[in-house]
Amino acid sequence: MSLNPPIRDWRGRRVWLVGASTGIGRALAHKLHGLGATVIVSARKAAELNAFVAEHPGSLALPLDVTDATAVQAAATSALQGGPLDLVCYCAGHYRAMRATAMDLDDLLRHQRINTEGALHLLHAVTPALLARGQGHLSLVSSVAGFRGLPQSLAYGPTKAALINLAEALYLDLHPHGLGVSVINPGFVATPLTAQNTFAMPALITPAQAADAIVAGWAQGAFDIHFPKRFTRVMKLLRLLPYRLYFPLVRRATGL
């Protein structure tokens, strides 16, 4: 059973992707443009956004810093001036490996500001317009790192867990008003963020493969879009383990 209205025809739809200068966000913008959507791309890096627009006629660049609520609101106003938004996706993210034995408070808070507070800034800016229309879809890019606590994920994991919980609450509040809500939980995707990892990443996929999986999830009307399933299904099973089994298993599997 579809939990959301399926989105299969992108022609004529207006889509705003925040965090679209690199990685999954850029690949998703490219994919949706190819399917006929009018794509609005946002991120801090104006040069990368302008390069995207030059390569994808009809798209629009709205540079912003997601940690600046005023800037996000101004960008939302500009985006909505062109017409209603059919889908808004928060793809922005920050990641640095961190353990409690080497805690960096500034970077801990940077994760919170970008990964969590930035999403709240965007939701606050666009949700009233979607509610007034009674139509549209909100999507948050989280991660399997938000499923359970993991080594080296002291800063990143809690922010992604927050997005999963946030998406669940949004769905309960907004679905009765005709809005779609989805949470995207990728495994390992080859992006500038994961390039810093020094360990072998299981089931690593490309940003283009991630974009294909996301669009397929929206076409199915899914709430929880997770991929690649050969990896994410294992991670979901780990959520069911009691702590007395989970902690030793993770230590053995990671060596940490």
Rank of each mutant, 00 (worst) to 15 (best):
P128F: 06
P158L: 04
P186T: 07
I205R: 08
P186D: 10
H121W: 09
H121A: 06
R13E: 07
M201H: 09
E48D: 13
D173Q: 15
T38W: 10
A167N: 03
V66M: 03
D68P: 00
Y156E: 02
P202V: 03
P176F: 01
A37N: 11
V41K: 07
T22V: 11
L131A: 01
M98A: 07
L60P: 10
L49I: 05
M103T: 13
H94K: 13
E48H: 15
A222L: 08
D104H: 00
R239F: 01
A92D: 00
A92Q: 05
G25V: 06
R251W: 09
L3F: 01
V53N: 04
T198A: 15
R252E: 11
A203K: 01
G19E: 00
F188M: 02
G157T: 02
A97K: 11
Q209G: 08
A129C: 12
G118F: 05
N165C: 10
W10C: 00
L85V: 15
A76Q: 07
V72P: 00
E55M: 09
A219I: 11
E55L: 06
A92I: 09
L245V: 15
G82L: 09
Y95K: 00
D173S: 13
F199P: 04
V66P: 01
A54K: 02
P5N: 10
A79W: 01
T191R: 07
T206G: 09
R14C: 03
T206S: 15
R110I: 14
P151M: 10
N165Y: 11
H94Q: 13
L120I: 14
K160C: 01
R233K: 14
A27Y: 02
R11V: 08
P242L: 12
M201I: 13
V189H: 07
W16M: 03
N197A: 05
G58I: 00
H30V: 15
D224P: 06
G136K: 02
S78L: 14
K160L: 02
S21M: 10
A97N: 15
F188Q: 00
G25S: 03
R133I: 14
A100R: 09
K229G: 00
M103I: 11
L28S: 03
V183A: 05
G93Y: 05
H226W: 07
S153V: 04
A167E: 03
N4G: 05
L174R: 07
R99S: 14
I214P: 05
L245K: 13
R8Y: 02
M201G: 11
R244D: 12
A102L: 12
H121R: 04
P186K: 04
I184W: 01
H121D: 01
K45C: 04
A20F: 03
A43K: 09
T70D: 15
P228L: 01
R244C: 15
P202Y: 08
W16T: 00
S153R: 03
A219T: 10
A74N: 08
G93N: 08
Y246G: 09
D224A: 14
T101E: 12
T38N: 12
R233G: 11
L85E: 07
G82H: 13
Y95S: 11
L60A: 07
L62M: 06
E55Y: 05
R13W: 12
M1E: 12
L237A: 14
L154C: 05
G36S: 08
R252F: 13
G83H: 13
H124M: 13
T127H: 10
G19W: 05
